[in-house]
Design a protein around this nucleic acid. Structure first.
Length: 221
DNA sequence: GGCCAGGACACCA
DNA sequence: TGGTGTCATGGC
């Protein structure tokens, strides 16, 4: 069993199952993925609640919103001008290429869908992978700041790896399973909210000072 | 009042 | 190719 599988098992026992992403439709996942860029999820929830209140959580409805109105609705998520543009560019793309259905974009092969998402302004690798995995249920591992922080501390990562290198590490060492990738990323985020941010070592977490992972070396495994 | 949060992009050397 | 500045709100 690889280190990554062992770490997953420990996290899963401690926190799982988490069943991400907190959204009602694939399109809502994509909206959340853009809105959460460098932003606390609580702020995103406020913005999504505003969109829901305007019945604007479909590509058609979002396309009808004037830019200023959209900026006003997503204001709590921060970077509201950038994000309004990014949302409208995504909606325009779905309208022009996929009959207003994100599901059509996601029905392609993983590589084709990922390439297409990455060509859109404002959708980088993490946002694309979040959409692929959580909206499309495609086996694309999501790497985020928490992933780098946690696995850097564990000694799995050196800290100078590129996004694609980290993603490839997880995708080659783990079974190609979207359910596993989904849960793993959710567990990393859940764990880091306790272990990595609030305090250096969380007494009740599964990777505390008594755990070999917290020592920064996995050599003994 | 400062720091951080489930990034991406433009610009520059 | 890699580093830096910019975008911006809300919670702690």
């Amino acid at each position: 069993m690889t280190d990554l599988k062992i770490i997953f098992n420990r996290l899963a026992i401690a926190y799982g199952p988490l069943h991400w992403w907190p959204a009602e439709t694939p399109f809502e996942v994509a909206i959340g993925a853009i809105l959460t860029q460098n932003t606390n999820w609580k702020n995103v929830e406020m913005a999504i609640a505003n969109l829901r209140g305007e019945i604007a959580l479909t590509p058609e409805a979002l396309a009808e919103l004037p830019r200023e109105k959209l900026e006003q609705l997503i204001y709590p998520s921060g970077f509201f001008r950038q994000k309004a543009e990014r949302l409208q560019l995504l909606v325009e793309h779905l309208q022009n290429r996929h009959g207003n259905r994100l599901e059509n974009l996601l029905s392609q092969s993983l590589d084709d869908a990922r390439r297409e998402l990455l060509q859109l302004k404002g959708i980088g690798p993490e946002t694309a992978d979040s959409i692929l995995l959580y909206a499309g249920e495609l086996p694309s591992f999501v790497v985020d700041a928490y992933t780098n922080r946690l696995f850097g501390r564990l000694g799995v990562l050196q800290g100078n790896e590129s996004y694609e290198q980290v993603r490839a590490l997880f995708m080659t060492q783990l079974p190609t399973d979207p359910v596993l990738f989904n849960e793993y990323h959710a567990l990393i985020v859940q764990h880091c909210k306790c272990f990595c941010r609030k305090r250096p070592v969380c007494a009740e977490c599964c990777l505390n000072q008594d755990c070999r992972y917290a020592q920064g070396s996995l050599d003994s495994i």
